[in-house]
């Protein structure tokens, strides 16, 4: 338990805003920038904004989660951190699972807070905002899991960052479909499905990410 706390503490110090791999406010600002640009692009039609704003927030959240991918896993593989953890008997799967948690903590709560000013910019009412925030709560763990998995898979590749962004989009699309889809439904089935996909992604991520690190080591 102490080991996991130590690892989480390092990962958070690294990834949180103002952390030493810095730029963690970037997803937050990027998210707000999209919410701010959208009304300028489509015009000040309050009704149109209200109908489409929730979806824009979802697209912005998905794109914002791409930004930190390049520093999630690659620097630690380069520096041999996972090797030293493995020598201490800490499985790559455990290290990746903690990385997923730290990644989620470093971007998702901020996005949910940022959804508040974004909802004002996009003229969303309170009930729509609450559906969006609940949906993000259900969907962002999946985005974090997919992001860390892809970051591990592309860590050793040249141009891995660009590739990681492209790979994340199709894998994250189901979360977007159900998360944003819940805005158009009277019940909360969409949110539940987004949560279900998140759980599947969370279950797969440590094993896929761990296997990727081992493959990079054994090459």
């Amino acid at each position: 338990m102490r080991v996991f706390a130590t690892l989480l503490r390092r990962d958070l110090a690294m990834l949180l805003p103002g952390g030493r791999r810095g730029q963690s406010l970037l997803p937050f600002l990027f998210f707000l920038a999209i919410a701010m640009l959208y009304p300028f692009a489509v015009g000040p039609d309050a009704d149109l904004l209200r109908r489409t704003g929730g979806g824009v927030i979802w697209v912005a959240a998905l794109l914002a989660s791409i930004l930190p991918l390049d520093r999630l896993v690659a620097p630690d593989i380069e520096q041999g951190v996972f090797d030293q953890l493995a020598i201490r008997g800490i499985a790559d799967e455990a290290a990746i699972a903690i990385r997923v948690l730290a990644h989620w903590l470093s971007f998702a709560p901020l996005l949910m807070v940022a959804a508040l000013p974004a909802s004002v910019l996009l003229n969303l009412d309170g009930s729509t905002l609450s559906i969006v925030v609940l949906g993000l709560l259900a969907g962002t763990p999946g985005l974090a899991a997919i992001g860390v998995t892809i970051a591990a898979l592309t860590a050793g590749l040249r141009g891995g960052t660009a590739l990681a962004g492209l790979l994340l989009v199709p894998l994250a699309t189901p979360i977007l479909i159900f998360g944003a889809g819940s805005l158009a439904r009277p019940d909360d089935g969409g949110i539940l499905l987004a949560a279900a996909i998140s759980l599947v992604a969370l279950a797969i991520a440590p094993f896929a990410g761990g296997a990727a690190i081992r493959a990079a080591r054994d090459s």
């Binding site: 620097p75 520096q79 041999g80 030293q84």
Partner: peptide, 23 residues
């Protein structure tokens, strides 16, 4: 090995402190 497994951005004492806590 060559790779120190120490966080490049951190002061040396802090970078070592992570492994010290772990060990």
């Amino acid at each position: 090995e060559d790779r120190t497994a120490l966080d490049a951005e951190l002061p040396l004492a802090d970078a070592l402190a992570f492994w010290a806590r772990l060990d």
